[in-house]
Simulated scan of single mutants.
Amino acid sequence: MKALKITSILTVLAAFGSPVSTSAAESWLSGDWYLTIGATGMIAPDFEGSKKYLFSATPIISLGKAGNAVRFSSRNDNISLALIDQGDFRAGLNGKFLWKRDNDEDAIRGLDPVRWGGEIGGFFEFYPLDWMRMRAEIRHGVRAHKGVISDIAVDAFHDVTPEVRLSGGPRLSFASAKYFDAYYGVSTAEAQRSGLSEYDPGGGIRSMGVGGAVTWKVSDPVTTSLFGEYSRLMGPAADSSIVRERGSRNQFTLGASASYRFDFTM
């Protein structure tokens, strides 16, 4: 946290023309960087809590300073910028894009649509063992919702060959009342229009689950993977009338991804 504050101060001072701070900011920016971009295609629930499945796609974007190689990454990792990278410990900024949730699906017809938007926040990860990574993300909603959400994942990984890796582990997610209200709440007016029971959620645990992947390093910059995820909605999400009356607590995801890493110097 202290490093984030120092970086922010240096950046602001540099904008006002301070020669000392400009030098410090340039020193931090200079060096070797990497940018990983790609895409993920998956079969997943139509919306959170839905029992209907559709195909969708999401981008893969990761930016950071080169040096210590990223030992492990997961398709669950959202867009991230590492500001601290000590090999066994990384931390920085991250974000997530959220698609609009329309109310044209029969199960949620009559509910207010959820606007497209995003989530911004931070992440940290560390390796308690050579073959295990623990990662946590905390993000605040922008436009789509005004809540806070936190995701925690633990992954064990094993290299079957230098190019093929198996990985997997548990997942846990928490959210605030404002998040649940946007995606799981049903107001009096919405209840009258949709036929669902009125529901005013609080905050708490969102889901528990497990995920796994097979990753193939096709070449040095190109990586592909196949993955599967299962999550069980809990707490305010499971208690929602959307889930109880027309959806499912069991959420499955199956998909594939491909990414390309660009190395550059500033």
Results as ranks from 00 to 15, higher is better:
V210H: 06
L129A: 15
A237C: 02
L196I: 04
R171N: 08
R193K: 03
Y199I: 05
S73T: 08
T265L: 08
A258H: 02
P45V: 03
V12G: 15
G169H: 08
W131P: 10
S257Y: 07
P113R: 04
D88M: 14
E48S: 12
F157Y: 07
F97W: 01
G195K: 03
V160I: 14
I37D: 06
M266K: 15
Y179T: 01
L63F: 02
A182W: 02
S56A: 09
H158K: 04
W216T: 06
A156I: 01
M134D: 12
E198L: 07
Y184K: 03
G235L: 09
D130Q: 13
G64R: 01
D112Y: 06
M1S: 14
R109Y: 11
K96Y: 02
G49P: 01
F227L: 02
T11Y: 15
V148L: 12
K96L: 08
L196D: 03
S50E: 08
L4H: 03
D239L: 05
S23A: 15
S150C: 11
F174I: 13
N94E: 14
D102H: 12
T40D: 11
G168I: 01
V243G: 07
G67N: 05
S219T: 13
R171F: 07
L226D: 00
M234E: 15
T265M: 09
R171A: 08
R109E: 09
A82T: 04
N76C: 11
I9S: 14
E163C: 13
I9H: 15
R246Q: 10
F55A: 09
F174H: 05
M266S: 14
K52L: 08
D181C: 04
W216D: 10
I242D: 06
A144E: 03
P59D: 09
P128F: 10
Y184C: 06
V12D: 15
Y184M: 04
P170E: 09
V222M: 12
S23T: 15
R75Q: 12
Y127P: 07
A82V: 00
I138P: 03
M208R: 12
D130S: 12
G67M: 07
L93S: 01
D200R: 09
I120D: 04
R133L: 14
Y230D: 06
I43C: 04
E245D: 13
K100T: 07
T36A: 09
N76H: 10
E105Y: 14
F72S: 08
P170K: 05
R232M: 14
V148A: 11
I152K: 04
S248G: 10
S248Y: 02
K217N: 13
F124Q: 01
G118K: 01
R109P: 00
